[in-house]
């Protein structure tokens, strides 16, 4: 019983997250300005981390946790660097 309930919950959560990633990807392509694209990319990183955590629950494996941790780290560095780039035109001042 609990396994069936969880299976549906995980499937639905994955669908919701993938739809959310689709929305963010649309904004990434649409723009209209560079800051919109960077914002969409940052959202995509967080959504990917959430999707990995849900995958971890689905497979019962702890390895997805490390991938999620890495993705959040990479997302922070990438967005910070891109914002710096938008501000000054160069990453390292």
């Amino acid at each position: 019983m609990s396994a069936a309930l969880l299976e549906w919950a995980v499937l639905l959560a994955q669908l919701l997250l993938v739809t959310a990633m689709g929305c963010a990807a649309f904004r990434l392509m649409r723009g209209p300005r560079a800051q919109d694209r960077v914002l969409a990319l940052d959202t995509l990183y967080v959504l990917a981390a959430m999707l990995l955590l849900v995958f971890g629950i689905r497979t019962g494996s702890q390895h997805y946790f490390e991938a999620a941790l890495l993705i959040t780290l990479l997302g922070f560095v990438a967005t910070a660097a891109l914002s710096k780039f938008l501000m000054r035109g160069e990453v390292i001042e």
Binding site: L12, L17, M21, F26, V54
Partner: peptide, 16 residues
């Protein structure tokens, strides 16, 4: 899970 994914989707819809 559903609450978290639902909120994330709401945020992404807001982005659109």
């Amino acid at each position: 899970l559903l609450l978290g994914a639902g909120l994330a989707l709401t945020g992404a819809v807001g982005l659109l």
